[in-house]
Amino acid sequence: MKSIAMVIPGGIAGVKTITDKLVYGLKRERLNVKVFLYGKNLAINTLLDLRYASQLRNFDTVIYMGSIPQLSATFIKLTRGENKTILFVHGFLFHETLNALRSVQISLRGKMMSLYNIFLWNVGTSTKSIDLFICHSITTCEANKIVKNYIILPQFVFPEEIITYAKLYQGLVSDSSNHNEVRVLVYTSFALSPRLLKPYHVIRLIKGVSRKIVGRRIQLLIIDPRVGEKLEEYSNLKVRFMKPLQRHEFLQLLAQADLYIERCIDEELGLSSIEAALLGTPIAKLTHPRYVERQDYEDEILWASSPRKFVDMLSDYIQHLDYWKPYYAKKLRDFLATRRSWDRVKAPLIKYILSS
């Protein structure tokens, strides 16, 4: 049985969720997986990593999560370790680091952490310590200057997840929803990436939608850790900024929403979009024309390649919500079951791990 070590940086909720799913998927393939979970402190992480390096060297494969190759990867390579090292790249590392250094909202400690991550990246890549890169999309690989030795592993689901979320949905929603007020949800984070729509972009788009609809009000809910609680009201549009929620509260809000807006303008669908689909909440997405041909979805979500088409599409959706919402909810569940199931996307990774 092949042995796999999963090295996970601490304090990154989204990465932890993806890691948990990947560990579960690998164990389904009868692989022996051990998790090494690090903390939030950079100095302690480095000491832990060096301490574990000799252990990691004994695994057939080491998978580093969180986009950053730890120093143990270089140790393994320099000591002629025979195991395979894989790096799972989740975001636009260089763009996000540069934006973090420019941001006045990022603390000095946060800026130092960003610079240290770039140092680790440069050490890992310059010593050719990584044998294979995993990206959620081709665009993510390109943005991180990864041009070879990579595979694409998009966000995926398991059959039992579809069943679990369908049951969860029943306990999260009520029949008292008021469709004269349409709830549109957006989730943001501290990530500063050029591939993400900013809140003011979303507000501008939804303002355009609000001018075209008749007889309905829109409540735009923006979860934004940078802003906190704030309320803005226009004619038939209410914009409410919210602080990050506990997971159950977020899932409840997601299940009760009439529409979830994916902020990625490339081909990727983020983790929250997948959870929206699992809960039967349709997804809207503005895709840059450059990335349209890379999408693996067609009419399963409300997507457009121009702001005008996006506004027109959402206006029609909201105006005829009773028809379109169940239509897209079903299309999304079918999409997850057929094109984003673990069994559909796992082959390149499993083949690499099992290869001699």
Score class of each variant (00 low, 15 high):
residue 4 I to P: 04
residue 4 I to Y: 04
residue 9 P to V: 02
residue 10 G to S: 10
residue 11 G to H: 07
residue 13 A to R: 14
residue 15 V to A: 03
residue 24 Y to S: 13
residue 25 G to A: 11
residue 26 L to E: 03
residue 27 K to R: 05
residue 28 R to C: 15
residue 30 R to C: 13
residue 32 N to G: 08
residue 35 V to D: 11
residue 37 L to C: 10
residue 39 G to S: 05
residue 43 A to S: 08
residue 44 I to A: 00
residue 44 I to H: 00
residue 48 L to C: 10
residue 48 L to T: 09
residue 53 A to M: 06
residue 57 R to Y: 15
residue 60 D to G: 05
residue 61 T to V: 15
residue 65 M to S: 08
residue 69 P to D: 03
residue 69 P to C: 06
residue 69 P to F: 09
residue 70 Q to K: 01
residue 74 T to R: 02
residue 76 I to D: 00
residue 78 L to C: 15
residue 78 L to N: 12
residue 79 T to M: 08
residue 81 G to I: 09
residue 82 E to I: 13
residue 85 T to H: 03
residue 88 F to E: 02
residue 90 H to L: 01
residue 91 G to I: 04
residue 92 F to S: 10
residue 93 L to V: 11
residue 94 F to D: 07
residue 95 H to C: 09
residue 98 L to M: 11
residue 100 A to K: 05
residue 100 A to T: 10
residue 104 V to F: 05
residue 105 Q to E: 08
residue 105 Q to H: 06
residue 108 L to H: 06
residue 112 M to Y: 06
residue 118 I to K: 03
residue 120 L to M: 08
residue 120 L to W: 06
residue 120 L to Y: 07
residue 125 T to C: 02
residue 127 T to K: 03
residue 129 S to D: 02
residue 133 F to H: 03
residue 133 F to N: 01
residue 135 C to K: 01
residue 142 E to D: 12
residue 150 Y to G: 03
residue 151 I to N: 01
residue 154 P to M: 05
residue 154 P to A: 05
residue 159 P to N: 04
residue 159 P to R: 00
residue 161 E to W: 03
residue 167 K to N: 11
residue 174 S to V: 10
residue 175 D to Y: 15
residue 179 H to R: 07
residue 183 R to A: 01
residue 187 Y to L: 12
residue 190 F to W: 15
residue 193 S to E: 12
residue 196 L to M: 12
residue 197 L to N: 05
residue 202 V to H: 04
residue 202 V to K: 02
residue 204 R to K: 14
residue 208 G to D: 10
residue 209 V to E: 05
residue 211 R to S: 13
residue 211 R to G: 04
residue 212 K to I: 13
residue 214 V to L: 02
residue 215 G to C: 11
residue 220 L to Y: 10
residue 220 L to R: 03
residue 221 L to W: 05
residue 226 R to M: 14
residue 227 V to Q: 01
residue 235 S to C: 13
residue 237 L to S: 13
residue 242 M to C: 09
residue 243 K to R: 08
residue 247 R to G: 02
residue 247 R to W: 15
residue 261 I to H: 02
residue 262 E to L: 12
residue 263 R to Q: 14
residue 264 C to E: 05
residue 264 C to T: 11
residue 267 E to F: 07
residue 268 E to M: 14
residue 269 L to D: 10
residue 271 L to C: 07
residue 271 L to G: 06
residue 277 A to L: 15
residue 287 T to Y: 08
residue 291 Y to T: 10
residue 291 Y to I: 07
residue 295 Q to N: 11
residue 298 E to A: 08
residue 299 D to T: 13
residue 300 E to R: 03
residue 301 I to M: 06
residue 301 I to D: 09
residue 303 W to K: 02
residue 304 A to V: 06
residue 306 S to E: 13
residue 307 P to M: 15
residue 307 P to G: 11
residue 308 R to Q: 14
residue 308 R to W: 15
residue 309 K to S: 11
residue 311 V to F: 07
residue 313 M to L: 13
residue 316 D to H: 04
residue 317 Y to V: 05
residue 321 L to P: 12
residue 325 K to V: 14
residue 331 K to Y: 08
residue 332 L to Y: 04
residue 333 R to S: 05
residue 341 S to A: 01
residue 342 W to T: 07
residue 343 D to V: 07
residue 344 R to G: 09
residue 345 V to F: 06
residue 347 A to L: 09
residue 349 L to A: 07
residue 350 I to P: 00
